[in-house]
Amino acid sequence: KKIKIDLKKGPEGLGFTVVTRDSSIHGPGPIFVKNILPKGAAIKDGRLQSGDRILEVNGRDVTGRTQEELVAMLRSTKQGETASLVIAR
């Protein structure tokens, strides 16, 4: 099931960490939400869960991207702006 979640970045950030699983010589594996932090946009919104697979960030497919690339995409969202995620659960 795909779910679109918009998180408005506040002073505590987006409020979640990510982890890559099953990376191989063929490229990075899928990226999942690792933890929801006690402060930040994710816990206020309440929909994002540990174990959700991140498919898109701000309309860009993240398949084949590294964890570092995904984190850079999320960090490029400025405070007060919205990060738009599509996740699979």
Rank of each mutant, 00 (worst) to 15 (best):
M73Y: 04
V86E: 11
G80W: 06
V19Q: 15
L70Q: 07
K44Y: 06
G27E: 13
E69W: 06
K8G: 09
V71G: 14
K78M: 08
K78T: 11
G15K: 00
I87L: 14
D52W: 00
S23N: 08
L14D: 00
L85Y: 02
P28M: 12
E69L: 03
D61A: 11
K2I: 07
A83E: 06
S76L: 09
A42Y: 02
E69R: 05
A41H: 03
I3D: 03
M73N: 04
D22R: 03
T20G: 13
T20R: 09
L14V: 04
T82G: 08
Q79S: 11
D22W: 03
N35A: 13
I43H: 10
L37N: 04
I25Y: 13
T20A: 14
S76I: 10
L85F: 13
L70C: 05
S84R: 08
Q79K: 11
G46C: 07
D61K: 14
G80I: 03
T63D: 06
A42G: 03
R60N: 07
G46T: 09
F32N: 06
N58K: 08
V33L: 03
L70Y: 05
I54W: 00
K2H: 03
S24E: 13
S23E: 14
S24H: 03
T77R: 09
H26I: 15
D45S: 12
L37K: 02
S50T: 08
A83F: 13
A88E: 14
I36E: 01
K4S: 13
V19G: 15
G13V: 01
P28Q: 04
I43M: 05
V19T: 13
D45A: 02
S76H: 14
K34P: 03
T77K: 07
I5Q: 00
E81K: 10
R53H: 09
S23P: 13
F16S: 05
T66N: 07
L14A: 02
G40Q: 05
G10F: 07
I87M: 10
E81L: 09
L7M: 15
L70G: 05
K39R: 04
P38F: 08
G80C: 09
S76F: 12
D61S: 10
T63S: 06
G80Q: 11
L74H: 01
L70W: 03
K9E: 12
T77W: 12
I36Y: 00
G46H: 12
V71A: 14
G40R: 01
I31H: 06
R53F: 07
R60P: 01
I25F: 06
G51D: 08
S76Q: 14
R53L: 11
D52L: 00
L7F: 04
M73K: 04
H26F: 09
H26Q: 07
K44W: 06
T82W: 08
H26W: 04
G46I: 01
I3G: 01
